[in-house]
Amino acid sequence: MLRHPGESADGVDKAAPAISEITDDALMLRYARGDKGAFEALYRRYRLPLYRYFVHGTGDEATAEELYQDVWTKLITARGHYKSTAKFKTYLYGVASNRLVDYYRRTSVRNNAVHMVNAAPSSPMLEDELDGTRILSRLSEALQRLPLEQRSAFVLQRETGFSVAEIAEICNTGVETMKSRLRYAVRKLRKDLRSDYD
């Protein structure tokens, strides 16, 4: 269990109010000067959404773990060069987005995954067969069937709460293009996940 910086062994979080008021950028700059507690505070803020971003983005927990650690390692390694010219959150997810795209480019698993999923569609899921594990599986497959750009944009929006403009900036594209990607992503997911009943 990751303990909050300043949290004592008895669970009383004496420094929590102070830490919670410190901005991400200030924490990152403190970490760049060697403050380990600042890193832990930042890590605590972003660990779960970033991990979910990769799990949903790749559909594979082992790959997600690898990419997740890569991003934090890059942040740790580059801390001395960090400049607060952009919001830390934008910086972090920019690194994550690039890592995800880079992973698919290097391994070409996107095409393989689409081929595999299309080749072996799940059997229809009837109401009386509803099972949580199968729901998760269906959702994961539907996400993997999305084009990478749409999937990355949709997952970024869900995990970060970024505006369309911020996601467009991270993905290095225009706002209108991003709006279209997000709209298509939701439409395709809805169609895919409801296909058993159409």
Partner: peptide
């Protein structure tokens, strides 16, 4: 519904 299903799915912790 798609967004809510997505939010409910996936890992709850690292």
């Amino acid at each position: 519904a798609v967004e809510e299903l997505y939010d409910a799915a996936g890992p709850k912790d690292v």
